[in-house]
Design a binder for these strands. Structure first.
Length: 836
DNA sequence: CCCATTTCGTTTTTT
DNA sequence: ACGAAATGGG
């Protein structure tokens, strides 16, 4: 292990800190005072306190839109400006890379100068940075690969197949979820093995899967997402001297979105804020690390000061291990912690906030907290119930166009939904209406097969041990290397204790066919050649820089050319391959951008950046497009106008969450997060029927809609209206009241409690309208039977003749030729039709 | 070993 | 409905 002075420490570090630490104790004097005035101007008293408080631990409970980013940036700026800390002593953790970049910009704007050396990044980026630097301590190559979920699944699939574990019900997805959960709880294979119940064949099998998985990642010098955090924790625990370097360096640690940290992240923060004990201080000193002036009376370097910002009402990542207790029990974990509450909202109108307050107050077990604004009520919330998802999408697009005509920029509007699958109908209508839009997240550029192929070439060059990458490119493009050849290469490697890559180089001696052998050695040579381009010049090596190494784009260009990947796509007769070739060219263009924007950066830097992009990082503020994204991706963002779509039972709350403890409460928080993204206009919409798995099914309004006080919402078409057509058939519908638990109800989640609550709080006028929904049924034509030749009347389309009836039971569909409106398909059960 | 056809499962959210 | 993966013939 090597102990070196942190290269990011600013020059002058060795002379300066004594005076810096002297000033640290004398809070606000002289220049520091003037600066603090400047940096707290325009803040409310709570915000000001959050900026100015100094102590070991500070919890800022920040409601949505309460200016927490402002508080964080001002707090960092005031620490630096008041000479209380060097920029390099700051570690700020944000949720996305984009948020990190923004925060850095804002801090530098406040300071009026660049503040190099600050670490502002996500948990994952910070950990990668530490791990690459300290890799050798834990027996890892510093060029380790980061495996994404798809990579994990590929490996697990192979393992499960080899072990025949599918007979015990294991799937790659289930094993992946279980492994991830364990790692988030900092339980590694050996810990798990100790506690395993050897009588349970399922557990024994899982242990074997976990073992193999761990071994393969280690052999490939690869880490998965969860490893990035947990391995850093293990590194710090196993090597106190390494930990001490970072504990000494980071004097102020700030964590945003603390409510969404999991146990491993919590442990990491604990390690980083630990004091450095005197014996370790002495060792650091002996290695030339400056410690003078940093120790307290007991000879320790005190733990870093910790600031966390969060809002337990916005905790929406329990499914990936986020533990709400981290924030709830902060005061217990860090005794003497100061708590500051930010409740004043600077983002939304009072109507939007009232809706948000009303919804979230239904979650029990929370500290009551009410958002308020001094800016007035604003417009009412607009509601709409479509007949289908397309109808709903049309409403969204119509409103967007109206807003745009009224002067709202497209980029200031966003459409949110619960699941990615919901984009389909929305996109169709957006395209048809020629409204510029962008789907944020979803199927990402880097997840496309051809891009993963090209990336695998780069990975294979950067990390020769990565067998997964090598296997991926072995026969891509087609070189006549099939599974049989691949297996013999793998077993040759195994038997001779070689890496897969070394086996490829030695393919001559395998007795394979001459054509196949040449294909393998050619590929190995191309990879070697590319690797040679990446070696820095002697000067670069001496100075520890990347000088003389080829640019990422040049390496990729060579690989694409010599492997024939692009040529194969161009020459293919599959018309889609032309697009794929263009995508690969786009990747090449992106590496050129990367080279330009990051001079001196390495291939590994590029691969890291690509691995760690978050969905929200793709957002481009300058693009004049409407943003479409999931509610999860929307966290932390804000828009002038927000559309919350698909507000239906089964979707929000999602079907899958119903069985999980705390599921419905978390889904409610998700709704709350969505509502509070809106500044001026909020639109709530749903559809009465929704296609799923290609089949149309009846949808019910989300239970959360009822939690919004009636007077806040202006329904252009309420669920009741949409179902009953303005009450044209209220009797028939009311007749079914009480019978919703039976056959007609399906997935309806309305409970008695809601019924009561609803009937007490709603006005008489709207009661009738909403009553239809509360009964748990939409318009129901009962057992109306139609057959080809029948004449019907539809409230929109007029009269027509039934041509055909398809489907079964409640999903029967009538194909109708309307006299005026043409051919339509109608879901018989709910369509506003009558038989003539 | 390659390609075409059939079958299957997929939809919760993500670093 | 759609795309990925399994199957089977060339």
């Amino acid at each position: 292990m090597t102990l070196i002075l942190d290269p990011d420490d600013p020059t002058g570090w060795r002379e300066a800190p004594v005076s810096a630490t002297d000033e640290r104790s004398g809070a606000a004097h002289g220049a520091g005072h003037a600066a603090s005035d400047r940096l707290t101007a325009g803040l409310n008293p709570q915000q000001r306190e959050a900026v100015e408080y100094r102590g070991p631990a500070l919890l800022i409970v920040a409601g949505a839109g309460s200016g927490k980013t402002r508080v964080l940036t001002h707090r960092i700026a005031s620490l630096i400006d008041g000479r209380e800390a060097w920029p390099s002593q700051i570690l700020a953790i944000t949720f996305t890379n984009k948020a990190a970049a923004e925060m850095r910009e804002r801090v530098e704007a406040l300071l009026g100068e660049a503040a190099g050396g600050m670490w502002i990044s996500t948990f994952h980026s910070a950990c990668v940075r530490i791990l690459r630097r300290e890799a050798e301590a834990i027996g890892l190559s510093s060029t380790f690969t980061i495996y994404d979920s798809a990579d994990q699944r590929t490996i697990l699939k192979r393992i499960i197949k080899e072990l025949d574990a599918d007979t015990l019900g294991f799937t790659p997805a289930s094993a992946q979820a279980k492994i991830s959960k364990l790692k988030n709880e900092l339980s590694d294979v050996e810990t798990f093995a100790r506690n395993v119940n050897t009588n349970d064949p399922n557990e024994v099998m899982f242990l074997e899967i976990f073992r193999q998985y761990t071994r393969r990642l280690r052999d490939a010098s690869a880490l998965d997402f969860d490893d990035l955090i947990s391995e850093t924790v293990y590194l710090f625990r196993a090597f106190p001297k390494v930990a001490a370097l970072y504990q000494r360096r980071f004097r102020h640690i700030l964590v945003d979105e603390y409510q969404d940290t999991n146990h491993a992240q919590y442990a990491l923060i604990r390690e980083l804020t630990r004091p450095v004990e005197p014996d370790v201080v002495a060792e650091l000193d002996a290695h030339g690390v400056l410690v003078r002036g940093m120790t307290d009376a007991s000879g320790r370097i005190p733990g870093a000061s910790l600031t966390v910002v969060g809002d337990s009402d916005q905790s929406i990542y329990a499914f990936r291990g986020a533990d709400i207790r981290n924030i709830v029990e902060f005061e217990r974990d860090f005794p003497g912690a100061k708590v500051v509450l930010l409740e004043q909202n600077y983002r939304s109108t009072q109507n939007i906030l009232s809706a948000a307050n009303a919804v979230i107050s239904n979650n029990f077990d929370r500290k009551d907290k009410k958002l308020w604004t001094a800016d007035g009520d604003g417009d009412k919330i607009t509601g709409y119930t479509g007949y289908t998802a397309h109808d709903e999408a049309q409403f969204v697009v119509d409103e967007i166009e109206a807003l745009h005509r009224a002067g709202v920029a497209y980029r200031d509007m966003a459409v949110f939904y619960r699941t990615n699958a919901q984009t389909r109908a929305l996109e169709e209508i957006f395209v048809r209406s020629a409204v510029p839009y962008r789907v944020v997240g979803g199927t990402k550029f880097y997840e496309r097969a051809e891009i993963k192929d090209a990336m695998a070439y780069l990975i294979a060059v950067a990390n020769p041990l990565d067998e997964l990458a090598l296997r991926r490119i072995l026969n891509t493009p087609k070189r006549g290397i099939g599974p049989a050849t691949e297996t013999s290469l793998a077993s040759f490697a195994e038997q001779n204790d070689l890496s897969f890559r070394q086996a490829m180089r030695a393919a001559d001696g395998l007795g394979l066919g001459p054509k196949v052998t040449k294909a393998i050695t050619d590929l190995a040579n191309v990879l070697d050649e590319a690797a040679a381009m990446l070696v820095p010049s002697q000067k670069g090596i001496d100075e520890g820089t990347n000088e003389g190494a080829a640019k990422v784009s040049d390496v990729l260009a060579l690989l694409l050319d010599r492997s024939g990947l692009v040529a194969a796509l161009r020459g293919s007769r599959d018309p889609q391959d032309e697009t794929r070739a263009e995508n690969v060219e786009e990747l090449l263009a992106q590496t050129k951008d990367f080279d330009r924007e990051n001079p001196g950066a390495t291939l590994v830097d590029f691969l890291t950046q690509v691995s760690l992009v978050a969905a929200a990082d793709e957002l481009d503020d300058a693009s004049g497009t409407v943003s479409l994204m999931t509610l999860h991706t929307a966290k932390g963002l804000e828009y002038h106008a927000v559309f919350l779509t698909g507000l239906e039972e089964g979707l929000l709350p999602h079907q899958m969450s119903a069985s999980e403890p705390g599921g419905p409460a978390e889904e409610r928080r998700l709704f709350y997060v969505g509502i509070t993204r809106a500044r001026k206009r909020l639109f709530l919409s749903l559809a009465m029927s929704r296609a799923q798995f290609g089949e149309v099914s009846v949808a019910m309004p989300s239970r959360y809609l009822q939690e919004i006080p009636d007077e806040l919402v202006d329904w252009k078409q309420s669920p009741g209206m949409a179902n009953s057509r303005g009450g044209s058939q209220p009797r028939a519908l009311n007749a079914r009241r009480g019978g919703y638990g039976g056959a007609g109800g399906g997935a309806w989640g309305t409970r008695d409690r809601d019924l009561e609550r609803f009937s007490v709080t709603k006005s008489a006028a709207t009661k009738t309208e909403w009553a239809n929904r509360v009964t748990g049924t939409v318009r129901d034509n009962g057992d109306l039977t139609l057959e080809a030749g029948d004449r019907i009347r539809h409230t929109d389309f007029g009269e027509g003749t039934v041509r055909q009836v398809t489907g079964e039971g409640s999903k029967r569909i009538a194909h109708v030729a309307f006299d005026a409106a043409g051919q339509k398909k109608l879901l018989i059960k709910i369509a506003p039709i009558e038989k003539l």
